[in-house]
Amino acid sequence: MNQQAIIDTTQNAEENFASIVNYRQQMVYNTALGIVQNEEDAEDITQEVFLKIYEGLQNFRNESSLSTWIYRITITTSLDFEKQKKRQKRGGLMQRVFGFNEATEKPDFFHPGVALDKKEDAAVLFMAIKKLPEKQRTAFILHKIEGLTNNDIASMMDSTLLAVESLQVRAKNNLRNYLKDYYEKYFK
C-alpha cells in the first residue's frame, strides 16, 4: 500500500506514524548507514529522523512526496550528525582549519548487506566514498545503495537532472582517483 494513501485514509495520527515507521525504517536506516558508515550511529539517526517526522507530520503539506521529504530529513540529519561527531573528535578544529584529510586510510566499515566475496572490496569503496564532497557522496549513495534514479535524486536534492548526472560522474572520477592513490600508496 502506498504510504501517502495510508496517511490519507487513516484517521488516527498515531497509526499514521506507526505505519510510516514500519514502512520507512529500512529506507531511513540504509541511507543513514551509507552516509555515516556505522551501525550504531545509523540506529541513533534513524530514531532521530522519526522524531523529526513525528514533530513535522502535522505541517507536511504534500509539496513533495512523503518519501522525498523523509529522504531530505534523513540526509540532513545524517550529515549534521557526522559534522557534530567530527567536531567532537580531538583536533577536529585543527584538521578543518588546516584542511587535513580526516578519512582513515584503513577500510573499517563492512556493510551488512554486501555479499561475502565482495566484502573487502566494498569496505575499500566505502572508505573512498567517505572522502567525497557531501553532494557527490549523497548522490552516489542514493543511487548505488538506495537504487534511486537521477530524477528522484534531483528532486530530493533540490537540483536539476543535469546537475545530479554531473555529480555522479565527478563522484566516480574522484573515487577512481582515490582508489588509484590508495593502491599505489599501500600495495606497491
Partner: peptide, 11 residues
C-alpha cells in the same frame, strides 16, 4: 571495487 556494492542488500 566500484562495482562491489552493485546489488547490495538492504540492512
Amino acid at each position: 571495487i566500484l562495482n562491489s556494492i552493485d546489488g547490495i542488500e538492504k540492512a
